[in-house]
C-alpha cells in the first residue's frame, strides 16, 4: 500500500455551536482498510457522510485519487460522480424494487451498456451468494440476506471507494462473524479502498489495516493491526 487515495484535511462539521467533526485529517492509501472506531456520537457517521458528499464540511477539504472533491462549504464533485459504494447502517434497500432491480438502478445510473448489465448483476449477486434471491423484494428476505443485498448494491457499480456504516450492528453474533469473514475475503479479492465505521472492537480487529479511534469528533489514536502486518 503506497499512494494516498483518500485525503481529508482539517475537516470540521458543526451542528449549531457543537463540532460533530472537529479538525480531522486522515490519509487512506489505495486498497487500505481503515476502521473508524468510536462510541455513539463520536462523529464517525458524519465523517462518512462528508466523504460520500452527502454532507458538506464547514472547514477542510476532501481529495479523492488526487482530485479535490469538497472544499469548505462546497461540493466540487456531486456524490454520484465520486464512484463510491456505501452500505448504510439501516441498509436503505429500496423497498419498491426487487434485489435485481436495486442493483439494476445502480448500473443503469452508472451508464453501463444494457447488454452488460445483466451479467454484471449476476456476477455481483453470485459474489455475495444471493443469486437465488434476485427476484425477491427486500421485505421477502432475511436480515443476513438483506446485508448481502446491500453489499452487492454497493459493489455492483465497481466503486473506487467502499464506505460501510456499522453494517452488521443489527445482527446476532454468529451471523455477524460469518459476514465479517466474507467481507474480509471480498475486500482482499477486490483490493477495494475501504472505510468502515463501527463501535465494535472485534469488527475493527478482524477487518482493519489501521484503526482510527474517534472521541467527541476528534481523532484520538491511530493503530496499525495484525492484518496489515500479515499482508505486508
Amino acid at each position: 500500500m503506497s499512494a494516498t487515495f483518500l485525503r481529508l484535511t482539517g475537516m470540521t462539521r458543526r451542528h449549531g455551536s457543537r463540532s460533530v467533526v472537529d479538525d480531522v485529517s486522515l490519509d487512506v492509501a489505495f486498497g487500505e482498510v481503515v476502521v473508524i472506531l468510536g462510541p455513539s456520537g463520536s462523529g464517525k457517521t458524519t465523517l462518512l457522510r462528508l466523504i460520500a458528499g452527502l454532507d458538506v464540511p464547514d472547514h477542510g477539504e476532501i481529495w479523492l485519487d488526487g482530485r479535490r472533491v469538497t472544499e469548505r462549504d462546497r461540493r466540487l464533485v456531486p456524490p454520484h460522480q465520486r464512484r463510491i459504494g456505501f452500505v448504510f447502517q439501516d441498509l436503505a434497500l429500496w423497498p419498491h424494487l426487487t434485489v435485481r432491480e436495486n442493483l439494476g438502478f445502480v448500473v443503469g445510473s452508472a451508464g453501463v451498456a444494457k447488454a452488460g448489465r445483466d451479467e454484471r448483476i449476476r456476477h455481483t449477486l453470485a459474489l455475495v451468494r444471493i443469486d437465488a434471491l434476485a427476484n425477491r423484494y427486500p421485505h421477502e428476505i432475511s436480515g443476513g440476506e438483506q446485508q448481502r443485498a446491500a453489499l452487492a448494491r454497493a459493489l455492483v457499480g465497481e466503486p473506487r471507494l467502499l464506505l460501510l456504516d456499522e453494517p452488521f450492528s443489527s445482527l446476532d453474533a454468529e451471523l455477524r462473524a460469518t459476514l465479517r469473514g466474507e467481507l474480509d475475503g471480498l475486500q482482499r479479492a477486490l483490493r477495494l479502498t475501504t472505510v468502515y465505521v463501527t463501535h465494535d472492537r472485534e469488527d475493527a480487529r478482524a477487518l482493519a489495516d489501521r484503526i482510527v479511534e474517534m472521541r467527541h469528533g476528534r481523532i484520538v489514536a491511530v493503530h496499525e493491526t495484525e492484518r496489515r502486518e500479515r499482508d505486508s
Binding site: 460520500a52 458528499g53 452527502l54 456531486p78 456524490p79 454520484h80 465520486r82 463510491i84 459504494g85 456505501f86 448504510f88 439501516d90 436503505a92 429500496w94 423497498p95 419498491h96 438502478f105 445502480v106 445510473s109 452508472a110 448494491r153 457499480g157
Partner: peptide, 26 residues
C-alpha cells in the same frame, strides 16, 4: 420517505433520476 433511501440513490444517480426512479415511485 426514509432519507437514507434517497441518499443511497444520490450516491449513484443524479438528483433528477433519483426523483423519477426512487422518490416519486415511493
Amino acid at each position: 420517505i426514509d432519507g437514507r433511501l434517497e441518499e443511497a440513490a444520490l450516491l449513484v444517480a443524479a438528483p433528477g433520476r433519483t426523483l423519477r426512479r426512487i422518490t416519486l415511485p415511493l
